[in-house]
Design a protein around this nucleic acid. Structure first.
Lengths: 222, 222
DNA sequence: GCAAAAGTGTTATCCCTACACCCATGA
DNA sequence: TCATGGGTGTAGGGATAACACTTTTGC
């Protein structure tokens, strides 16, 4: 492959759209670029693939190197390869969608990135490359998958209340939901277990805490 | 990009899973490889990306060059990049899903391919690379999308009967459907138009012919 | 006792499913 | 007239959507 012009010279990167729900918003994790092109601008975490690693391995490695985030939900999103999308030449990127619970939100910069920070998806800065479009694609995927999978629990800590589940759905989908119907439909999924413990946080009745019966798994429902 | 070892040397291909329903089967279009590796074996149509073309452009070009098929429905499927998937070195492929109506099924070989032929998806020969897995992924996508989009009409000629629509669904999903319920649900999509013409083919009542109100468009329903 | 969020059932509506017979044609 | 696929309606069951009040707690 690639020896002496036999095949077109192309580079491949992965870029990761990491979402998290906190502060009553859907947020995405960005890094400030530490090198050209677009030095100083915000961009998705990501980078060039190594010769001996798989695509998902690359995404996990870059995410950890650039933001310190690891061990989270990750799925392939889409590949972007418009010829002019990178000023350095022909770079094709395989984008990944990742979700992180709000209790694991403490990014730090590293390697190519000067720093990593969360931004509300409706309040993004100017971004490098075609990263606005990649984030939009990721957001569509997330909204769609809320409707037919248990992906939302990947945005919650290990223990959570049903109201927290509802809040995640409402923020991502952008509309209010009926409390009784929502709780019925979530419990009907049959993927939760009552922990028996309650969380008291404020001057009101404490809420029952639930956890995933099979943590880390996402299933398609319907 | 790729200048003098600055970034890993990688090649990128597209491969196309072309499905068509005819002969009471779901079929996939394969080519016989005309060069190493896997010379003489069957494989998906596809090939290396050019430096100035987009991913989908590449898929359409390779499909036309290798099989003569063009102007059909095409969507990105998934990217495959396991380090050992190609004996030539590091080759990442962006797979596409394509659908062709049965009246446009007449492939011819060309360029890298000696010949192109249709195979039933349950009766595939030994395939080059990881192409069995790519076809399986395409088949899952097709089955899933039948349920929430109007993609099935891309497997039908410009004019078709409702029975033909039903047959496509039954073959792809692998089970019989109720005629009355099926027709109701298809017409409720509100994407078809009666042509007013009928097709008489056999010693029975002729069937009304329908066409897409907006040909070539696939919409998400539900 | 008051404010604030947790928790809980019933009813009406819509959608999906199951199911059987007549119609138009060619041979 | 017979064989073949085309074409049509209804009723029951399950899922979904609308809707309001009581409970528990901290202050």
């Amino acid at each position: 492959m690639g020896e002496s012009g036999k095949y077109p010279v192309v580079s491949v990167t992965t870029d990761i759209v990491v979402f998290s729900v906190f502060g009553a918003k859907l947020n995405v994790l960005l890094i400030e670029r530490g090198r050209e092109p677009f030095i100083g601008q915000w961009a998705l975490p990501g980078g060039f693939i190594h010769s001996d690693e798989g695509l998902e391995d690359c995404a996990r490695r870059e995410l950890k190197e650039e933001t310190g985030v690891s061990g989270i939900y990750l799925e392939q999103l889409f590949s972007f390869g418009a010829p002019e999308r990178d000023p350095r030449g022909r770079v094709i990127t395989v984008a990944y969608l990742a979700l992180v619970p709000p209790d694991r939100v403490s990014p730090r910069g590293g390697s190519d990135a000067r720093r990593a920070e969360w931004f509300g998806v409706d309040d993004l800065p100017r971004l490098a490359f075609d990263h606005h479009g990649i984030i939009a694609t990721g957001r569509e995927r997330l909204i769609a998958k809320l409707g037919y999978s248990t992906i939302a629990f990947q945005l919650l800590p290990q223990e959570f209340t049903l109201s927290e589940v509802q809040t995640v759905h409402e923020i991502v989908r952008g509309r209010r939901l009926d409390k009784r119907n929502f709780r019925k439909s979530i419990l009907a999924l049959d993927v939760l277990r009552e922990t028996g413990r309650r969380r008291a946080e404020g001057s009101h009745r404490p809420a029952m805490l639930y956890e995933l019966a099979h943590p880390g798994t996402v299933v398609i429902v319907r």
